[in-house]
Design a protein around this nucleic acid. Structure first.
Lengths: 214, 214
DNA sequence: CAGAATCTCCCCCGGCCGGGGGAGCCCGTT
DNA sequence: AACGGGCTCCCCCGGCCGGGGGAGATTCTG
């Protein structure tokens, strides 16, 4: 099998080398190029034909959003773009979605998160957005937007999430469903993973913002 | 100062004596009577003229909701009713509100909660509903219902709650507000107390259901 | 001036939570 | 029969959370 070709676009050299280090250490992933602004990213993409572009939002001259839109005009659709953003740069989210981004990553994400995101997007699935990000996206998109259904929770997991979103503890959920606490913990763990949530609070937020609740 | 006169209405003698024990141990609170169903509660209230009635929802013959409504027809408005319910009896909540209940308590509440609830209601303020209860009430009442404002959070506490409802950890909130983690913990602790929430999950739920968020 | 309220920070500590494993069972599909 | 997905339960463990105290500084107000 061939390696997943990744292009890294960020204006800070330190970030670029950091990402390169993370990605190169992973078998099956190759960094085929770097770019320090949006224009360079487009040029590099045209040259190196990556599968995926890790795109920083804030870059001098041509920003990441614009670059993402430009990449979408490639013949064949161009590479899949994963937008990398900080928690602060909230407003860009919806714009990035409209520009055709396939996923989001928080800059402070762990190395594994980057790897998983790249693999997920490369497999053709839509990336599970971090809960905090999805919240913002849903706000802008308005009702009828993204459903939590994308996360394809199982029936049991949905049931558990519903109870979590009612403020029940794991022990209480276990009593409610008449199963062991360990079982509940397993379900919760899976739900968190599927939603890209760090803890049950973020899961509840995602549930509300996506319309899963109500 | 005179003592707060309380009437206890519950069909289980064990619960009645338990409540009596809790309340009688508190100076300034006097249990002036007991009743084992709604009809008896109304009769006892007419006779003993309590300030407050602790009313169980489920009682034989005349239930607590009906009794609450009947008490509201007293001359002078009658006593303030605090409805005592379990987490399971969800559907009664809105009915109880409409019947004129002044507050809610979960049966599993701590002794202090009972005392505080009685004092709060007696002081004329509306009782802070437990988050889980308020959630249900808001659902039935629809938009434009109860505001979280009743909880009179301070400015800082509101700010903290907003960040909690964004899924941030205490450490992250501290960084965001440029204060110490211990400070954040204090604020969070106060918010939880004021909202009647057990943990930040329940606080977030209350924030959403009350319209504090969005 | 003396409270009251608010914001800030501190210590201690038990408990729930979340992550990482593993494993058996049932059932529908291949 | 073999496989995979879903549900169930188990162990270990570090870390954040929440509760209970206390305490100093500032500001506003009676």
């Amino acid at each position: 099998m061939t390696s997943i070709r990744v292009l890294v676009a960020d204006d800070e050299p330190l970030v670029r080398s950091g990402l390169r280090a993370i990605l190169e250490s992973e078998p099956g992933v190759t960094v085929v190029g770097e770019a320090d602004d949006g224009a360079a990213a487009v040029a590099e993409a045209r040259r190196t034909r990556p599968d995926i572009v890790l795109m920083d939002v804030r870059m001098p001259r041509v920003d990441g959003i614009t670059a993402t839109r430009l990449l979408g005009q490639f013949d064949g659709g161009g590479p899949a773009v994963i937008v990398v953003t900080t928690f602060e740069n909230d407003d860009y989210v919806y714009d990035a979605l409209r520009a055709g981004a396939r996923g989001f990553l928080l800059k402070r994400a762990a190395a594994d998160d980057y790897i998983n995101a790249i693999r997920t997007v490369h497999d053709g699935e839509s990336l599970l957005f971090p809960a905090a990000i999805r919240r913002l996206a849903a706000r802008h998109a308005g009702p009828g937007g993204h459903q939590l259904a994308e996360a394809h929770l199982t029936e049991r997991e949905s049931e558990v999430l519903r109870l979590v979103a009612r403020g029940l503890s794991n022990a209480e959920i276990a009593a409610e469903l008449v199963v062991g606490v360990e079982t509940v913990k397993t379900h919760v763990r899976n739900v968190l993973a599927k939603l890209g949530a760090r803890d049950r609070v973020q899961a509840v937020i995602a549930a509300y913002e996506s319309g899963f609740i109500r």
